[in-house]
């Protein structure tokens, strides 16, 4: 994917980002890391088109992110699973496919089965979100994001609300998607996952991009801020 951020400033909640600029070509999995409030989640939301920046422009694969074409080309996974609780895991997928993509019932059902299977949920599709574990629900929400066949999947700290065991379960589910041909932009605090899964890392602090590069920057941080971050996070 190609990604270009020009002179972007924005405030969301307590996060403020300030005059960001970056231009990336041909990466498949871009990680954004940093402490809470560093601006990484805001940047993710801006790139997903969920927020409009007060200043500047963002383009992904040559498209301005404010266009509805961009929205329709992405899948999104949030900190909590965001499944519709009155629908089974499978219905969560088929509803989206039938109503927003105009896909016929049978085909939608087949796509749902395929994607649930990809996330090892083949036998859970008939259950309501409240009757599966947090990890399974989050994996179902990843399956739902995949099922619309997006170009890029955005993951906003997908394991933030899970315990370590469920975190592993969800992250290994995501790692299996490396060969799926999809691109990813994600925020995560799990550095081992960032190392394995990302081919580019953006480190943010206080609303600025402090360091960026291949995951090697994690092993040889140049700035004192990233050094400090690495010493505190596993």
């Amino acid at each position: 994917m190609n990604l270009s951020i020009k002179n972007v400033s924005h405030t969301y909640d307590i996060e403020v980002i300030n005059d960001l600029n970056i231009d990336l070509q041909n990466y498949h999995s871009i990680a954004m890391i940093g402490v809470s409030g560093s601006g990484k989640s805001t940047l993710l939301r801006l790139l997903a088109g969920l927020e409009t920046p007060t200043e500047g422009t963002l383009t992904v694969n040559g498209r301005d992110v404010s266009l509805s074409d961009h929205r329709r080309s992405i899948g999104m996974v949030f900190q909590t699973h965001s499944l519709f609780p009155h629908l089974t895991l499978k219905e969560n997928i088929t509803l989206v496919l039938e109503k927003t993509r105009g896909i016929a019932q049978e085909k939608a059902s087949a796509i749902a089965d395929e994607n649930l299977d990809r996330l090892s949920l083949a036998d859970q599709g008939h259950k309501l979100p409240q009757n599966v574990s947090g990890g399974q629900a989050q994996r179902a929400s990843i399956a739902r994001a995949l099922s619309i066949d997006p170009e890029i999947i955005f993951l906003d700290e997908p394991t933030a609300s899970l315990d370590p065991i469920l975190t592993d379960e969800v992250l290994s589910g995501i790692e299996k998607l490396k060969t799926s041909g999809k691109d990813f932009i994600f925020v995560s605090h799990v550095l081992s996952f960032v190392r394995d899964f990302a081919d580019y890392v953006i480190y943010m602090d206080k609303g600025k991009i402090v360091e960026h590069g291949t995951p090697d920057i994690l092993d040889a941080p140049k700035s004192s801020s990233l050094k400090n971050f690495m010493s505190k996070v596993r």
């Binding site: 997903a48 969920l50 509805s68 929205r71 329709r72 992405i74 899948g75 999104m76 949030f78 900190q79 909590t80 965001s82 519709f84 989206v96 109503k99 927003t100 619309i148």
Partner: peptide
Amino acid sequence: PEEQYLAMDIFGFTNVQ
């Protein structure tokens, strides 16, 4: 929760839907 509304946004559900 807000995230459900965001999910509806991203998937492109119309208001009536």
